[in-house]
Design a protein around this nucleic acid. Structure first.
Lengths: 350, 350
DNA sequence: ATGAAAGCGCTAACAC
DNA sequence: GTGTTAGCGCTTTCAT
């Protein structure tokens, strides 16, 4: 094992000079700089991350905490986060925390200590529904670890960074699209009730109906769990109604895909007999038939932005809260028109 | 910050005793054990991972290295690996390495040094196509880091662990399924040529044809890249042939999903007019219509097993190669019959 | 602009 | 069975 002192001896300089060069610090003559670099290369020196962490109390790692890493949503965010982390010389650790842990303060604290605080990451990325747990946020904040929260329900005053789109506005636009196609009986499938997104998207849906002078029919609103299966079940219910909806807006793409399969199973054509609208623009959206009209969330950018902010805060190195004000970044969404939505027509009528 | 010495003072024991208790080492009286535990709790002591790593030269982290983390394959493996890692008190770092890096020895070495060896993980998990790069394997091995390789093309003698299914046997069974349905013109869509799986699955396909006395028609074999798009393109080609195949076996599910969309676009019914067979049993397989007949790889278990082996080797703590012999684990695959494959019939004939 | 010395928090080696 | 000592490899502090 080659250590820094070996490089120093080989280059004929002091330990500290090597350290300065490797950390790109100023106050070193160019001549010494290149000498050090040459020695590093010749000896094949690789710095020890642990030693550096111990002394500098920076680990150059971030943690992404989620309930599951399967499914397109977290997956794509993660992809953006890993790329951005590596770009800045950081590593990304993916941690999975049980959903139920959120509601058990003691379990939450135990989990945080053993899986998070012990590792002292330089920052944490929280995705729904964890972005919305005040207690969880507080535990992490107390440990002095900055947080980037993705898609939080409410913006708090805890000096964190929030990254999101305006779910309400987006859902309203999606609903207006269906209304403009002539639909008036429009079903809605909700997601997890503890995800803020569920409520915001539903509000966008109901606002659009109201503005169009359409009464909201509660029988057209079904619960869901953001999963394919829950979407399929809700779809089966909605499509077997006597006076079934002519369009269905699901709160995410996985559920919308479930509705489309439900339609196939009932021999109902999409979009001729029923239009289906999703939300997220997940990978699935272009892989199913008909391809899914949806709202694109900039998932990759969520991950990238989250990391950029954390790198920045770590760079400032200021543990003083005042130096890291709360910050909210509302990114643009995009309406994606594909083949699962179409005009109201004679097929639609039951 | 509470340190170990603070706990020792508070409990009235020595530093080393605290260390022994926290590491579950023997030779400590129960009375002292509980005293220490009490002090830990009272002071809210959390050990420092960096200090422990520096001294013990174990980092309690594994690296999973892949080209992308998007798509179901790596994603599911990762999920299993994260869970298993946490269970044993390890963290999983996800690293992305550019595909092209593999073919540039210098870039590969640079990447390894800055993103891998510097962090000194206690183990590395390699997925295709990285599991098959001898140079990459060698660089990691030289650094004394154990490797679990998932789905490697060839079993080497580098004292690593290999986890896979028998792709050839599985692909043969899949092809036999199509043959038993009466199909004789069976198309095949290949994957990346540098993935061993491509060749093994093709061999299973051609072996099955041969045993059934069917001549392999090279015009029915198309290249692919394991992506939805490449599958759709290959599907469009195959389905627009004058004498088109009555069944298509794609080397993975993403491509099979592409074939199904290609069929829709050409108004060809699946499975009535063409049967489609996938491979992997990815998330997609149950989310599209018709649901996909496929071969299930135990992806979650790949990840779990990979970690179990690494934990074991790290536990043995023996850097001597002789103590960690090469080991190959061939897991069971599963044939999954769904709705995309059906008997040859009058619709199939062009 | 450079170097010497101190020490981050822990575990390994060795005493007792 | 328990404690003492040394030191992992680096960055920080302070002296020059």
């Amino acid at each position: 094992m080659v250590r820094m002192i070996d490089v120093a001896n080989h280059a004929g300089v002091s330990l500290k000079t090597v350290s300065r060069v490797l950390n790109n610090e100023p106050h070193v003559q160019d001549a010494l700089r290149s000498k050090v670099h040459a020695s590093v290369k010749e000896l094949g020196y690789i710095p020890s991350a642990s030693a550096r962490s111990l002394r500098s109390s920076r680990t150059y790692t971030f943690h992404l905490i989620s309930r599951t890493v399967e499914g397109n949503f977290v997956n794509t965010i993660q992809s953006g986060a890993v790329r951005a982390s590596q770009k800045h010389g950081y590593n990304l650790i993916v941690s999975l925390m049980g959903f139920e842990t959120l509601n058990e303060p003691e379990a939450l604290e135990r989990w945080s200590k053993s899986f998070l605080i012990q590792k002292r990451p330089d920052g944490v990325i929280l995705v729904p529904p964890y972005s919305d747990s005040p207690l969880f946020n507080e535990i992490i904040n107390k440990a002095g670890i900055p947080i980037s929260r993705i898609g939080p329900n409410e913006i708090d005053d805890m000096n964190n960074v929030n990254i999101t789109i305006d779910d309400g506005v987006a859902a309203k636009e999606a609903t207006n699209h269906l209304i403009s196609l002539g639909h008036r009986r429009i079903g809605f499938i909700r997601g997890y009730e503890d995800h803020g997104a569920t409520h915001k998207r539903f509000k966008g849906y109901s606002d659009a109906l109201q503005e169009a002078g359409i009464d909201l029919d509660p029988s057209l609103v079904k619960p869901g769990m953001f999963s394919f299966e829950s979407g399929m079940n809700a779809g089966l219910e909605l499509l077997s109604m006597n006076n079934r909806p002519t369009a269905i807006f699901a709160a995410n793409d996985d559920m919308a895909a479930g509705v489309i399969v439900a339609a196939y199973r009932n021999n109902i054509k999409v979009p001729e007999a029923v239009s289906v609208m999703g939300f997220d623009d997940s990978e699935l959206a272009e892989r199913i038939w008909p391809t899914l009209s949806t709202i694109r969330q900039p998932l990759l950018r969520y991950g990238e932005q989250a990391v950029e902010y954390l790198v920045n805060r770590a760079g400032n190195n200021s543990k003083k809260k005042s130096d890291r004000p709360s910050w909210t970044d509302i990114l643009d969404y995009e309406f994606i028109l594909r083949e699962s939505t179409g005009p109201l027509n004679e097929y639609s009528i039951t």
